[in-house]
Design a protein around this nucleic acid. Structure first.
Length: 569
DNA sequence: GCCGTTTTCGGCCCGACTGTTTTCAGTCG
């Protein structure tokens, strides 16, 4: 059984948590956390690297010891380190650490003083008022813990970026009306355009003394005020998402925006770089001794550190500082570069072809692929419908020279990977999109082989949703993306980035793998109605997070270049 | 436990808020 990166990262995270509770050296704790973060951000499986005899200690924050531990976990399926720590403290304490307000120190105290090992025992102790009596705790903490434990049962995890946008945009508009507000800026993972968002971070730029917290508390969607101070406030909205708002003054707006945009890994790397240059970087600016030398804009902050501007989507601590230093940051693709959409869903109750064209042209597109779903065992009416579809497309294409519809079918990849498409069907259509639609739980090896086989079909233009994930649950299907990307490059097959906000598949790190391996990506809306065409922006966000440039996408090409690329008449 | 333009030892990001303190520890982002 192959061990995934996620399992290894989870193991390191658990070791870090238990070490922290065990009062180990805090820097050792952080070392495990840093390593876990590195592993989560990787596009390549560690098991793959090990089988290639790669030196794992070359990965950031992975040294000789942790490289050995990774190999041990891959080989034996277990971690001796974790087992040793669990002998001293119960592993269930980790779930207590996830409770807001409880850190390692308090969890330890709860365990040592009251023998509390998990949520249930904590809830019981709180109800019996045994918490408030503990030193360092109090009446208020006990009350809050009870509330948190109750709320935890209905707690929502992360939200899709599309949902986050629905809450972020009106709130930003509302905060603009804060008395004295000069500007309101969305920061955090929302600004970095992560596929999923845990909370909303917002900066209110205003003259000192103005109180944004007060204004925020009166927003109609606020369910609960969590904290409220002079410079920051936190609330929960009715949707369940938490909002953190900071008031900042204009002269340090850039430094604050940079810091609150994160990511944490990026910020730490930036501050460390500052340290090496004898500078202190904080949300208030860049300082040499006590003198502020930059911070009004983000650009000035980067410049003070000897770096060019780094786009928010790249700030994940995945090598962007080194790239910036060596002047090899990517020239990221943007929404305006997209010239066509090569996958929308064409079916009976949806828009007609004429309506699709109208919607696509309104968005400034030059070409379009309404995909006709071709079943595995087609019947006579399917053949007739496809024929009718192709005739309509030909007619519409003949009418307009400035806009092209591609005759496209989408087919399911069967378990054995063999696409069964008759010559008569293939002679009718321009593009074939192939995607896995069932049997998601094959072993990684079999799943990968199935997909490689499908791409071997000479008519296969594009692999749809390569990982078949939902965006809130990364890695739903286990595949070897490096092999898939290599094969895609060799076969001239495109890798789709499905822009539906609950998909966003290719995930950002796999888009990066595609680029590294030289495979072409195609960002499509996979819209079912005209309104969904705009979702392509979410796909472009993920492409940018994967360091993709316009040249890495197929659908940034002109109609002529694309025909040439895909071998369409 | 990692890391290195003060490099193999001695550092490790930095500031705000809360609650329980009576000057600060713990937690969070």
């Amino acid at each position: 059984m192959l061990i995934s990166n996620k399992e290894i990262a989870d193991t390191f995270e658990e070791i870090a948590s238990l070490l922290a509770i065990d009062e180990a050296n805090p820097f050792r704790v952080r070392a495990y956390q840093n390593a876990a973060r590195t592993i989560r951000g990787m596009g390549t499986e560690l098991s793959e690297l090990v089988s290639q005899k790669s030196d794992l200690s070359r990965l950031p924050y992975i040294g000789k010891d942790l490289a050995g531990q990774i190999e041990e976990i891959l080989r034996t399926g277990r971690s001796a380190t974790l087992r040793t720590i669990r002998r001293d403290i119960p592993g269930t304490l980790v779930e207590l650490l996830e409770i807001p307000g409880l850190g390692p120190s308090r969890v330890r105290k709860l365990y040592v003083e009251l023998g509390i090992r998990d949520r249930d025992e904590l809830a019981r102790a709180a109800e019996q008022h045994r918490i408030a009596a503990l030193p360092g705790f109090g009446e208020k903490t006990e009350q809050r813990l009870m509330g948190v434990l109750r709320a935890h049962r209905q707690k929502k995890g992360r939200f899709s970026i599309a949902d986050a946008a629905k809450w972020m945009e009106p709130l930003v508009e509302y905060l603009r009306k804060t008395p004295g507000a000069l500007d309101v800026l969305a920061a955090g993972s929302y600004r970095r355009r992560k596929a999923t968002i845990g909370d909303l971070d917002i900066l209110v730029v205003s003259a000192p003394g103005e109180d944004a917290a007060d204004h925020l508390a009166r927003y109609s969607e606020v369910r609960e005020v969590i904290s409220s101070g002079m410079t920051r406030a936190a609330v929960t909205l009715n949707s369940g998402i938490q909002v953190d708002v900071r008031s900042i003054s204009p002269h340090c707006a850039g430094a604050a925006l940079h810091y609150f945009t994160g990511s944490k890994a990026h910020s730490i790397q930036v501050r460390r770089r500052g340290q090496r240059l004898g500078l202190k970087v904080s949300e208030y600016g860049v300082f040499r001794r006590d003198k502020r030398i930059a911070g009004k804009t983000e650009k000035s902050l980067f410049k003070a550190l000897g770096l060019p501007y780094i786009e928010p989507e790249l700030r994940e601590g995945r090598g962007e500082l080194a790239a910036a230093e060596e002047d090899r940051l990517p020239d990221l693709v943007c929404a305006d570069d997209v010239r066509g959409d090569l996958h929308v869903v064409y079916n009976a109750p949806g828009p007609s072809l004429a309506e699709w064209i109208q919607a696509a042209r309104r968005r400034g597109l030059e070409y379009f692929a309404p995909a006709f779903h071709w079943p595995r065992s087609p019947r006579k009416n399917h053949r007739l419908e496809l024929q009718d579809y192709c005739e309509q497309v030909d007619e519409l294409n003949a009418k307009r020279k400035s806009f092209t519809l591609f005759k496209t079918i989408e087919v399911d990849i069967p378990k054995d990977g063999t696409l069964r498409l008759s010559a008569s069907i293939l002679s009718q259509v321009d593009l074939v999109i192939a995607g896995v639609a069932g049997d998601f739980d094959l072993s990684r090896h079999k799943q990968t082989a199935r997909i490689l086989k499908a791409m071997d079909h000479p008519a296969c233009t594009m692999l749809a949703r390569p990982i078949d994930r939902s965006s809130t649950e990364l890695g739903a299907m286990h595949v070897d993306m490096v092999k898939i990307a290599d094969h895609a490059r060799e076969r001239g097959c495109l890798l789709e980035l499905d822009s539906r906000p609950d998909r966003l598949d290719l995930a950002d790190q796999y888009a990066h793998v595609a680029k590294e391996r030289g495979a072409l990506v195609c960002v499509n809306s996979v819209a079912e109605s005209a309104g969904d065409l705009a979702d392509i922006a979410f796909g472009i966000d993920q492409a940018r997070r994967g360091w993709l440039e316009a040249r890495n996408l197929a659908n940034t090409r002109s109609t002529g270049k694309l025909r040439e690329l895909l071998g369409v008449r």
